[in-house]
Design a binder for these strands. Sequence first.
DNA 1: CGTATATTTGAACGAAATCAACGACTGTGG
DNA 2: CCACAGTCGTTGATTTCGTTCAAATATACG
Lengths: 260, 260
Amino acid sequence: MIVKPALPHSITGFVVSRPLRQNCANCGVRDVAPCRGLSDEGLVEVDRISYRKRVAPGGIIVREGDPASWCGVIVSGVVKLGKTSPGGRQQIVGLQFASEFFGQPFDETWRLSADAATPVDLCCFSQPAFEALRNKYPAFGGALLQDTVGALNAAREWVFVLGRKTAEEKLASFLLLVAERLGGEGCARGACATQAAGPLTCDLALSRTEISEYLGLRLETVSRQFKKLKEAGVIETSGSRTITFCDVGQLKRLADSELA
Amino acid sequence: MIVKPALPHSITGFVVSRPLRQNCANCGVRDVAPCRGLSDEGLVEVDRISYRKRVAPGGIIVREGDPASWCGVIVSGVVKLGKTSPGGRQQIVGLQFASEFFGQPFDETWRLSADAATPVDLCCFSQPAFEALRNKYPAFGGALLQDTVGALNAAREWVFVLGRKTAEEKLASFLLLVAERLGGEGCARGACATQAAGPLTCDLALSRTEISEYLGLRLETVSRQFKKLKEAGVIETSGSRTITFCDVGQLKRLADSELA
DNA sequence: CGTATATTTGAACGAAATCAACGACTGTGG
DNA sequence: CCACAGTCGTTGATTTCGTTCAAATATACG
């Protein structure tokens, strides 16, 4: 289990970006991030050309419309991808977790805003450096393609959740997502946590408001659905961000009821 | 303007799949599909290893859960990507148009069903042949990555539409999508059609039921919103599938009102 | 400990769903 | 040519789920 450092140099809401050299050999996501496609030689190069960004919870990573010059990999933390309509409505259109590729490698401007839900640690490359890396190490490009296809599948899954599900099902789906991605701390991909039978406690990275923005609901509705799940004995909460999953099987059933 | 042939050999609802050789030089999407990344030599190879599938409107291309062994490029037509919940609810989670990459190059089973909304023409590769192509021509992989990132952006855009928009805005967003992708027949990427001022007539590829499945609404609601848009003079319809956009600017405003 | 922020709860309202019926178009067979 | 069935789309009446508005309570933080 990886214990996250307490972010000594970060100030709430600000990006701390330094040309901090970080040895890939010690990197927690090395084997699951797109970097898995790199040879040892490639990793040496990554060590040389990459730099770190740390963002405190609530901090802005990038803003929609700003010029984009870099991209990278999420080393730790939870990133909210958001979109704001001209009218001012906000929607979280995706969540990203440790080991996922982050950014727009081909665009000149950011199409989405990105905010840190938890402390976020990014391994960054300039767009040209990133492209050079892809060209030099085709297996890196392959891994990246595979991950992007995976992200596309996840996004379409979420289209389904938003298009067809009720408020209760939406919240259940979100909680399952959290359980899978954050339940076994550091377990980046694969549903290791939700397979086990016993109760599972973890931190919901998101506030009620953020959850509502992700689910396309009002925060009052989210709060009421939480209450229902608690009354049904499926979950327990302590504080507003710590959740215990008492019955994951039932939660899965609720995430797609219609035939209980 | 490209006139589509009358699909001589296809039978409604069935896939006609033959090892039909097709010269890439004559291919309408050659320069926009991922194949744009291939050298002349590569295109010769594609000619050799690719085969065509034709599917009549309403026909099934692939079914969720079936073993996946191929992928390819949509040469013409509109493909509906659908997902069915265990409970039986259906949602169209994406639409795909000419020149887009189709399929799951890395998975063993199809995660989504795909159905033809119009006559569909696919240029197909077996998964191993496709992977070999990627490995041999890195620029092909690059183009594919670029397109996949684009598809991911489009999917997230749709998450926003489903999560935050009202019925009227959803329909307006859908109609704009149709205008952009189908308005300038054959114009595969880029919003050429919706820039012009004058009225624009085109075919809606989808039935009311299909539109409702795409927008996460009931068909009655879709019908009522059509009525509203017609009464507002933004669109006109003749038959149920031909639409004329009278005022694209107003439609864009309606697609994100909140501040008319 | 007090203030600001986040969450919960309540009551009234409204947009879209649901239930139900009707009309328009298509193709078939008498 | 028309009656018929079948599909698809429209329209109306009613209900429901989630929103909205409003207030109370809990939590975090200086």
